[in-house]
Nucleic acid binder design. Structure first.
Lengths: 232, 232
DNA sequence: CTCTTTTTGTACCTATGGGTTAATTTGTCA
DNA sequence: TGACAAATTAACCCATAGGTACAAAAAGAG
């Protein structure tokens, strides 16, 4: 493929297609892994470049600098999260089952996306500076609160939930164990062993979390109640 | 070597005292802050040196390399934590009050030591590699489990606690919200506002956590029960 | 088929920062 | 009191990795 031009010294002979979006996607995918694995300062741009199908030059072309790339990764990952949340349909469930579903889904979603968890951990190490700087993100996590507010309101109207139930607090209570379960697995299991991280124990933990949350919110709730079809 | 004193070219003239322990302590204190602030790769040895009352060379003299220093910091911080745990006396309290006290103390201890939290976050980013490598640490966190086991056993004997209550799970349930409350404050408040982080809301959150835990463990428990002096 | 714009590759620059060399002071103990 | 070890200092080294300069090749417009 060098007939016609015959680069004598230089061998510019690659024939690429114009597909900036695919190139960006590719970079972001690799960068996500690298940042999640090593953090912002720990990540290595040369290493990222080596794992992409393009070159270091393109990273700087599209994302400006390391921080720009990190920010793009962060935003993409948060967006994905939001999409997952939006998929959850809870409106046509009873308040108790609805809440139980939200807890269960949150716990499972966290367990299924350790990469996301790691990026959030890293962002917290940076005091959420990049998240704060982003203009698309502050409103992202709105939908989960809306869902909780809906369930909460319906639960109170039906006389099933305590008056003290608060959507934001509830989100905090649901996120905390779900997040910690993944984020602190390494130090926890190093200190106390792997016992809690077998599939069976994880199932149990999940049900306990559901019971705890429902116990705090549902009047007269008793453990195991989330399993019953008539969740009174 | 240039004539008694009188350094014409070199000015080695500082006069220092020998106090290795104090120097090490000083280095560790500064290094703890730096590592907690920026992580292992983000921390800068020159910066640490600049903030100590000694020199960069001494850091390498006492701790070998950056990782050695990080490990020393980690171990010291875990040791401090253990000492705090040991101070908690729970044996002469009833099971319910005892458990409530453990939850309250854990929540407050986490809130009071953000530096420790950050180091644990960072260590989790590194998959607990340095914690695992340390020989003094794996047995460190034993005492808190022992305390929980004691409370648990007494609660069961008294017929107050559910049979399902498990010390390790309990520790997980107590740590999760206590840790998350500090570790994820930055992203949480960026996403949802600072509402939950005022002193009053933190108090409320703490009581809710206590209620959740006790609700999961104590038979027939009802919210606010931890406050009553006769914790039946 | 030019001309412009976008996309890409290669080679290079250079500040940063982890780590080292070698000398110098202080204390100690025969 | 002088050698020896421990503690400390100042100055230096240099690999790494973030970032850039330059220019070529492809695509699109007209």
């Amino acid at each position: 493929m060098d007939g016609g031009t015959e680069g004598p010294t230089k061998k510019r002979r690659t024939s690429w297609k114009k597909d900036p979006e695919a190139v960006k996607e590719n970079i972001l995918t690799i960068a996500t892994q690298e940042f999640a694995a090593h953090g912002l300062s720990g990540a290595n741009i040369n290493e990222i470049a080596r794992n992409t199908s393009t070159s270091k030059r393109m990273i700087y072309y599209y994302f400006g600098d390391k921080e720009g790339l990190y920010q793009a990764v962060l935003e993409r990952v948060y967006s994905t999260l939001r999409e997952n949340e939006d998929r959850l349909k809870v409106e046509n469930l009873g308040p108790v089952e609805g809440l139980a579903l939200l807890v269960r889904a949150t716990f499972e979603a966290h367990a299924a996306t350790p990469l996301f968890i790691r990026l959030v951990m890293i962002e917290n190490i940076h005091n959420a500076d990049y998240l704060r700087r982003s203009d698309i993100i502050p409103r992202l996590n709105r939908s989960i609160i809306d869902k909780l507010a809906d369930v909460c309101a319906r639960g109170k109207v039906a006389g099933l939930f305590r008056d003290s139930a608060d959507p934001l607090e509830l989100h905090w209570m649901i996120s905390a164990p779900s997040f910690y379960n993944v984020s602190n697995r390494a130090t926890f299991s190093t200190s106390f062993g792997e016992a809690l991280f077998t599939p069976e124990r994880q199932e149990r933990l999940k049900e306990h979390v559901i019971d705890m949350i429902l116990g705090a919110v549902v009047i007269g709730y008793e453990p195991g109640g989330a399993m019953r079809s008539d969740a009174r």
